[in-house]
Design a binder for these strands. Structure first.
Ligand SMILES: [Mn+2]
Ligand SMILES: [Mn+2]
Ligand SMILES: [Zn+2]
Ligand SMILES: [Zn+2]
Lengths: 146, 146
DNA sequence: CAACAAATTGGAATGATTCTAAGGTGCAAA
DNA sequence: TTTGCACCTTAGAATCATTCCAATTTGTTG
């Protein structure tokens, strides 16, 4: 029986990927993942902690860090950094870029055609073999609705 | 009279841009900038401190941070971040990307055609106005010579 | 020179993250 | 079923890059 209402969001994903890595499904991991799926605003660990606490008052910040790290290891979530700010967490697994709104501090997902990532890698000089490309825009977004 | 040998590297750049911002040219600022121009390996503040100390033994780490911040403000140097590691500093002002070698920890500059940056910005949905794009590759570089 | 602003300095404070040591939890072998 | 044991969680201490602070020092201007 799941601890949290928002169960339909991860039918098999979480338990499956955890099992694949030989890890257990725990209420803490389920809830942290739920919180990320429910409000996809790239929260920090502290923000995840605040959202999770009401549902599971005994949870510790250390555990939130542990769960987030676990989810990243299992490729269920991406860690996103901007300058030296606290790490943010993103459950969007499609290849995408991030837009950082300097006015509001909000982070938006920007879907990009996969061919663009390929074109970028093609620009690398011989001898450079990239297994990941990260793209971050910085600027201002219009009267944002999302 | 300049404090450091490597003066030809910044004939007018440093003093000029500092003056433009109403700031003074100091031995510390000159030397920090020289160090960045001389070995362009994206050093951290600590590494800059270590390179600068022999020439100016009295300099403090706080001053190195202050100088680097000043150089960034004056658009003489770019601050480069990778994940949550210490900020690195880059005197290459051309638009370029960074390649992070996961094996060696080295950071390489990757020059990219400006049109590519334009193409990326063109992918942004309406309402997103980017004034900067940051591109980071992660992977392995061949038997690196530079 | 005197007054004042800008810059440097050493050390304390910050803040996100990681580490550590001490309990829990739940399955599996005896 | 007990016991063993690996996995997890937890609170609080430790880390580490960076920033802040208060006290000089330096440079410029009147
Ligand atoms: Mn970002
Ligand atoms: Mn980098
Ligand atoms: Zn995202
Ligand atoms: Zn660079």
């Amino acid at each position: 029986m799941p601890t949290h209402a928002n169960n339909a969001l991860h039918p098999t994903g979480l338990a499956q990927k955890l099992a694949d890595s030989g890890l257990r499904t725990t209420p803490q991991r389920e809830l942290v993942y739920d919180v990320l799926l429910t409000k996809r605003d790239h929260p920090t660990a502290d923000e995840v902690f605040a959202r999770v606490k009401p549902e599971l008052p005994g949870i510790s910040l250390a555990t939130v860090y542990n769960c987030l790290e676990t989810l990243v290891q299992c490729d269920l979530v991406r860690a996103v950094n901007f300058e030296r700010g606290p790490t943010r967490y993103c459950p969007n697994l499609r290849p995408h870029a991030h837009f950082h709104d300097e006015a509001t501090g909000q982070t938006h997902d920007i879907d990009l055609p996969p061919v663009l990532f390929a074109k970028l890698k093609a620009e690398l000089p011989a001898g450079f073999d990239a297994n990941a490309v990260e793209i971050t825009f910085r600027g201002k977004a219009k009267t944002s609705l999302d």
